[in-house]
Design a protein around this nucleic acid. Sequence first.
DNA 1: AGGACGGCACTTTTT
DNA 2: GTGCCGTCCT
Length: 647
Amino acid sequence: MIDRQDGANDPLLAPLNEQQRAVVCAPQGLARLVLAGPGSGKTRTLVHRVAQLMRTGVPAERILLVTFTNKAAREMMARCEQLCGSSAWSLMGGTFHGLAAKILRQYGSALGLDPEFRILDRADTEDQLRAAVNDLGLDLRRDGLPRVRTLCRMFSASVQRELDLGATIDLRWPQYHHHLGLIQTIGARFVERKQEAGVLDFDDLLVGWSLLADPPASAEPAVHQTSQALRERFVEVLVDEYQDTNAIQGRIADHMASIGNGLTVVGDDCQGIYGFRGADAQNLVGFQQRFDAAERLLLTANYRSTPEILSLANLSIAHNRTQLEKMLEPERTSLGLPPWVVQCKDREEEARFVVTRARELQASGIPWSEIAVLYRSHALSTEVQVELAKQSIPFVVRSGVRFFEQAHVKDVLAFGRATMGDEFALRRVLLLYPGVGPVSVRGALERASVDDRFGQMAKTASGISRRGLEQAADVLAGMIERSADGPSAQLAFLVDHYRQAFVQRFDDSNQRSEDLEELIRFAQGFETMNQLFADLPVVDQTTRNGDSGPALVLSSIHQSKGLEWKRVFVLSLVEGHLPHAASFAEVDGVDEERRLFYVAITRAADELYLTYAQRAGHGRVQTPSRFLSELMVDTEPPFTMVRPSFS
DNA sequence: AGGACGGCACTTTTT
DNA sequence: GTGCCGTCCT
């Protein structure tokens, strides 16, 4: 056994401070809450705890490590591997959704799930819902019902917050109160459709896992048995970013540790920024009430940022009524650099300032990859992107559409899914061809079948759509012929055709062609089309654009959580952007925006630039963010105001 | 008249 | 980039 106090020569304990060691060496089998401020070495502490558990004899496959993003999971697994070697490979780590997928494929048969189920992304989910509406002969517009997008949000909110649909609607969409009955009917058909198709959306994953983690008394005996086996498997459960868990995730975590397993939850109520996804800080704040023997540990020493940056962060977050007191204490010494607030004339000048300054920083020895530009919403990044391109600066964008959600990637994947009999995918494929519209598609779908390799589909079509349908049938048949060669070869065959027929139409066809090559490479890891598609929506998509040399990072604030850079720019500190206008009407809305601001500024290690434009595109005057002005009352502001200077 | 297609709003944040 | 609507072509 390793002594808790004396770790001077121990590689697991030597690099840690007292607070961190207390977490790493805390006894097994208990519940505990760790409050960890930004930059406090939280990831390192978690990784070392995992290593410590393994060293004391807990097998890796009996440790469950829940993180918030796939990226975080990947990083933690890599660091565990560094510390523990290959024995860390069998660690069970990932996001709630990714882990739910793994667990349900392995343990879901008790729930009647086919282990080959496919996971729906948001677009797939909306397709299913739209189809459910059509099944019922409803017309959303005519019948005064919410749009498909909104219906999805209603069902999702109800699952994530564990509120019944009526309460959910009354709370957030009271204008649809009188339609509750109809919306419930749609929901029932929606659920039925997904079950018939053997597919699960993001919420179904959580519901499935929760049924195993915490089965209702009325569940079949087989479910209770599986539940027991599942919970006995994991002797230690660790949950990162716990403040961002919603009701159902909180219940899953609680119950995975309900039979004497250890549960370590790590979080920071000041960094809760997923309220829109139903995240409920009560999970964290009320943790000790739910587990009355739970001890509470603190990580408050900040190793990341200068005292000036931390002081700004502490002063800002003090404007929130946070329940848990926790001041960040700087470990670093001052570099003599105040946070800058840069007042620009317009968006264009703002972009020019950021890019010019970034360039100077790089020239002075800061690598591109140590500079980040953060913003509240993706659209705010366009001016900077244009300016970066103009000045030929390498950059990566970590916001906006995901790789697998781009039109050309979705097109190509749709061909693959069409060969497996997916009607939604076939529809998308056929609509690509000139002369083929919704009506000829409807006819074609009635005659289409994978078995005759779509031959009938085109044969009876008349007139203008025939040529397109024939082409589609040919290429789909070609793909089916190559089934034995594996999905990568099938996609390579298809991409030849697709590139000639369609990619040339895009004005950035080169980039898109490269993406398709990337996709073919990605598919090499899979033996069948089915496997390729099964987990696509929950796999890590951040490996994209990762390895083409050092690059400046553009990121939404949400995506930046957990990361750090030497120099950070935060764009558009104006009312309506940060805080975002949509937050004004929401309960806790502006407080959540302030936490977002807090997350953004605590990403910066050495130097922070907060920029804003006095005028928007069409000359409209913009008001500086309240997150700046509220810091200027009475006291000396914790930042220095400047105007851009171009040297 | 049926069907394709170009032009129009709308897009906060993410698994 | 998608969904919806009006217009134009067959």
